[in-house]
Write a protein that binds this DNA or RNA. Sequence first.
DNA 1: CGAAAAAGTGGCAGCGCTGCCAACAATTGT
DNA 2: ACAATTGTTGGCAGCGCTGCCACTTTTTCG
Lengths: 337, 337
Amino acid sequence: MADELADGTPTGTTTLTDVARAAGVGESTASRVLRGHGSFSAKTRESVLNAARSLGYVPNRIAGTLASTGSKLVGIVIPSLSNIVFPDMLRGANTVLVGAGFQPVVAVTDYEQGREETLVESLLSWRPAGMMVAGLEHSERTVAMLRHARIRVAELLDSDGDGIDIVVGYSNREAGGASARHLVSRGYRRIGYVGHDLSRDLRVAKRFAGFRSALAEAGLEVAAEEIIPSSSSIEAGRDGLGRLLGRAPDLDAVYFSNDDMAIGGYFHCLARGIAIPGRLAIFGYNGLDVARAAPQPLSTIRTPRVAVGETGARLVCSDGPPTKIDLGFELIEGATT
Amino acid sequence: MADELADGTPTGTTTLTDVARAAGVGESTASRVLRGHGSFSAKTRESVLNAARSLGYVPNRIAGTLASTGSKLVGIVIPSLSNIVFPDMLRGANTVLVGAGFQPVVAVTDYEQGREETLVESLLSWRPAGMMVAGLEHSERTVAMLRHARIRVAELLDSDGDGIDIVVGYSNREAGGASARHLVSRGYRRIGYVGHDLSRDLRVAKRFAGFRSALAEAGLEVAAEEIIPSSSSIEAGRDGLGRLLGRAPDLDAVYFSNDDMAIGGYFHCLARGIAIPGRLAIFGYNGLDVARAAPQPLSTIRTPRVAVGETGARLVCSDGPPTKIDLGFELIEGATT
DNA sequence: CGAAAAAGTGGCAGCGCTGCCAACAATTGT
DNA sequence: ACAATTGTTGGCAGCGCTGCCACTTTTTCG
């Protein structure tokens, strides 16, 4: 069927058959030319390409995928688009996937395991060539589906635990520990914590657990903590530190659940004239731009978020045995400790 | 074919036919039950559902979509994942689309029109139910393809121009103008500009054009400008302002291409002890968290990025005539002007 | 109580494409 | 010149599912 009849009636879309007919060749020949696969003469090539162009042919990958088994889609499941970590990871993954001819399909869980299950199922129904998910903790059924799918599965941004197939990340637990040891080595002793809802984001919980246990090894404990019930933000960090200092004014350092929160704390101190690090030290997590560019660069831990996306994507596109890669992190000794 | 033979040989995936056979019903009946569409007895329902569950059946939407014409995919094309604007818009769109049973497929152009064309073509080949693209400027072929596809097309985040079908955004030109008038009304006269690469991001160019022409109406012009050749960042803003002030130390206000840049400028002033706004006023664009939470809230323009995504998605999911919606913006009189 | 309507069900033809195979044409080698 | 290759090409059977239609039950109702 042509795209438009002589009388102007639109009739569906242009199909490969239309192109083949217009070019005066068989379907399979047209298909071969359009995919640059198999052999055909230069003349045939031209006529098919011309026909396709003049008809405005757009191949139907739905049909193509169904016929050839094995799509060029890769499902990506992340908890949020608000937390910079995930867009960063996504960016890395996107670059590599697109470079390898894959098309990412993104789904966002809002940190809910139930929704993760639904989304994984839904993505799998597109028969993707691979899946990338954030974190190592998933519902039993999610894991079962992922295993059952017999495709490459990458679990990203965490290395504290066992994965299904590919694991690329860094140890959040260890990052928390390193943060604590850094503060201790700098001589801080009355250390507080300002964090955000950790029941939802398990990586935050792991960090804090690592932090606590490293403190404990130094014979210390968290002197005071303030957990805000919502997700992290600069304002939450600012207000959280305000409240924490209201209750525990003698703290000499505060560990924040991430840089957003820490920058909030930094702003609180700036606004109140609290000397950093003289009167109060601040330590964050993530290594954001804003942390690096602040008048006093924030002491924090820089995580290889983009690289995690890239490496994960690369592995998902490849064959090979299950792999676990710890990309590590870098402790940035800024000016706030 | 069963998922696994008696001898343990894995044989492909479980199909609807398998489920139907296991449940002792016909394919179409199984299909109806699984989609909750059409009629079937409660008993049939149970047996199909049980069969599906015990076989670990995952429907194949590739096949489903091909058979039923019309997918539940919506293609989204954005220039970048690094600029907060796009993840924000994406978030709004995602919420609405998922709520309406659609699955977003995201593609990133890196601000290259050539790549946009490729990506639009590639996304269209998935026969999406709709498309959402950033901005109003596209290559001729891109527009042709989008029109040809006979699906809903939303162009987002800009309202300065004509669109293909649905346009949801705000006037970048007008935002620039409002910024200029604000500065003028506050009595600033020696106004500088620090911006980032505007050849790639057309919305930045529109803002600056609007800014200039509003200044001209007040009989003023941009006293000095510093354009960094890369994309925007806090550091770029900080360094840019440093260089600008080096060349033009007598400025009394600086307009930045966005809040990232402006916060960088703010940090520069903090670090150098330049009084804000006494000695120098700062004005940004976007209304980011960090701008609001800074010790001195940044004067800026807050744009309804998430709402643009939501509204655009809502319209893409609906029928109706071509529409253009200007969601406007809000000028935030912070403490930096 | 029988006819008409409704509910439940299975068969089967595609959706648009790819992969395989067989058919033929153009080369090459001997 | 003839056989053996190599290069080109079209036909056609699916991929797994949905939509339509025809058919068999039930239920409803005059």
